[in-house]
Design a protein around this nucleic acid. Sequence first.
DNA 1: GAGTGGTCTAGACCACGAG
DNA 2: TCGTGGTCTAGACCACTCT
Lengths: 278, 278
Amino acid sequence: MVIGRRKHPTAHECRVVRRCGKQLESAVRFRAPDVKTVGAMPSRSEEPAYKQIQKAIRRRIDGGQLKPGHPVPSERELARVHKVSLMTARHALSEMAREGLVERRHGAGTFVAPPRVQFNKLLGYSEQMASLGLTAHSRVIASGVVTREHEIAARLGLAPTSRLGRLERVRMAADEPVALETCYWSADEYPRLVDAPLERVSLFGLLERECGVELAYSDEEIDATDADLRIAELLQIPRGSSLLRIRQLIFSTKSRATVYAMGLYRSGRHTLRVRRFR
Amino acid sequence: MVIGRRKHPTAHECRVVRRCGKQLESAVRFRAPDVKTVGAMPSRSEEPAYKQIQKAIRRRIDGGQLKPGHPVPSERELARVHKVSLMTARHALSEMAREGLVERRHGAGTFVAPPRVQFNKLLGYSEQMASLGLTAHSRVIASGVVTREHEIAARLGLAPTSRLGRLERVRMAADEPVALETCYWSADEYPRLVDAPLERVSLFGLLERECGVELAYSDEEIDATDADLRIAELLQIPRGSSLLRIRQLIFSTKSRATVYAMGLYRSGRHTLRVRRFR
DNA sequence: GAGTGGTCTAGACCACGAG
DNA sequence: TCGTGGTCTAGACCACTCT
């Protein structure tokens, strides 16, 4: 059986080919005369067109050809160059604007946003250090399985007495302790994490590479507290010192609560950057 | 001269009427036979269709008809009911998903997100209190114009010696001081703010209602610090107590830096809720 | 007036999820 | 298999900015 035909085949067909199912392929090939440059057809990547456009723009920004304040090609220009429709080019730019990489000004154009720290970016400690050109290392204080953290189990959407993997690490920068981070996860779902070499390895990285979890976002509660005796000793600071406390519930792309983490950061050594919207 | 005609007039024309220019109106009226229910035509509001759809869904969530976990009408359903195209219904849902109000699950549907604090929501202190059902009040410690805050002027994109309005308030909750907030803005652009009755009035509200500024977002730096003598006295806490420090640069919808604010919050009295993305 | 982004159409095919 | 969201088309008109 032949499935439905597209009603308005055009030069854009060349893009369509790489996405459409086998059933259509021959029908489309039949329309080859419409296609201007078959040779320019992108390799059969699975990547959506709008993401490819974003990548192209990102490359030009990272490469320095496009500096802050410079205009990004307009929707119409991108649509023409990448041989996609306006809506697709628009989608690419809108998403980049939401991420804060570019700014859109009605009637004027789209411009590269000022150089900026990445706001609202969920990064593990190792990744933050890496983004600053430093290498992180950690001292594991404790790791194992606990069963009595009822409240944390609840936050992770597990039964109150679930077995939880628990990892407590002192984070170091230039051989100085700057933070204490404690993480919890379902020991039954991710048993291998307990024995992983987490002195130098990113928990986020392990989850994503070894456990097939894709992390998506975290909901966080941030406040200030002060150091009790134990933390004062671990971080080598006076008792009662100010600490920034960040409690995170980290979700996967399937909106599944995956890790609960609490971090206590020495004042002056950690600043959280956030963007909030009205 | 007659301007271009739409190529595919349909029943959706009834929506188009309320947006299209006068020149087209008669042409469209001519097509009235296509329109199913002229009486149901929405009043000539200026609101985009996708925002109206969002409002309708929000109403049903706020009203309790749609509870967390319940399915929201699908794109196709919304398109049919609101007489818009799929892309428009889709736009409405996508934006609500980004805001975290609903969750989209590929192949399954769109669902009301769990009850949640509003993450990454830029609110003034008065507004936060109001959202908790409390009334805020403040004690103005200082207000006036300063000219020597070069760094802050720079952050606001002004010349180093610009005249800056400055307002310092102690924020009260249940007659207890909980925070010290200091705001700066261009005294030349918003001169009236200096003399405004800010004991009980929201600075955000004044800016938006009286000054015609629409606030859009703020970039924030959050860390922990401790109370020096002056702040300890103002907040009636021991010297050296932990404080949550939030420095905000607040932007208008035109991406213009409008207000710089620094807040120092007593520990235990203020938690910031944030969502970060991977 | 020319060019830009904002909203919108009337569909199409795909990948995915649940029964 | 059916219904869902994800991506995409080839345009349209509007509101806005710049000059």
